[in-house]
Amino acid sequence: MEALLEAAVRLAVPLLLAALGELIIERSGIINIGTEGLMLCGAFGGFAIAVASGSVWLGAAGGGAAAACVGVLFAYFVVVRRADQIVVGTAINLLALGATGLAVRALYPGMAPVSPTFGTVAVPLLSELPVIGGALFRQTPYVYLCLLITPLLAFALARSRPGLRLRAVGECARAADAEGVGVSRTRFAAVLLGSLLAGLAGSALSLAQSNTFTEGMTAGRGFIALTIVIFGRWRPGGIVLAALFFGAASALQHRLQARGTDLPYQLTLMLPYVLTLLVLALASGRSSAPADLGKAYRRESR
């Protein structure tokens, strides 16, 4: 049980980081289908810089920075050019897959090297707690980053003025604009910050969950992050639970696959998606999605 919990948390962390990034972007009213690509950039950037510098910390920072650079591209098309968000997101995914695949072969002909990785760091005392001690406090720094970022983000959204402005822009860009909040500026910043988190999430894949980079190694996790945001109903707390649920589902799936039980592991893989569809279909009354999600904002000309 404890091992399963530990694995669930470990697997949930990249999903959670990416989903929190997506949350920031969506709360500003932009739907970003390109998380998968941003994560891939983060995974590669983190890996390459960790290999070159020998420092995992520089690597993680580099991963975030690499994704943020691609985020600028996304924001340019979506915020400045007001191009369709779905189409640009799709392009970002393809672009990132191609660019990172190309770069890894170019930089490391033959086999990609092994990068330094983050080890687990046990927090004194807390790691000795029963049940959750190992799962939460004997983990890689990414887990601690999540423990730090999630409440911070929840607090920022609820209790800080930049957070309020972000929500205002995503909920009602017209009202925010009328109140003097720069819609484009806020959205651009949200995309940058969200991309940074997606990049960190990607680096967790290459620097903590494995020790190398392989082509397309995100394997759909960006889309799962997208799903987690919906499943968590656009709230940091809900997103943590949803990410843990998805993490547990894949931990369980690994275990089922290893044991060779009768229960097909595909069911556990499918379950989160089916549940999300059900949540979407059955959600009645007030929608929790930002009201202006997916809508490009143009000031009405008078």
Partner: peptide, 13 residues
């Protein structure tokens, strides 16, 4: 690598 073609796809879009 063949994934370079994905790069072309993305840029084309």
């Amino acid at each position: 690598p063949a994934v370079a073609t994905d790069l072309v796809k993305g840029i084309v879009i």
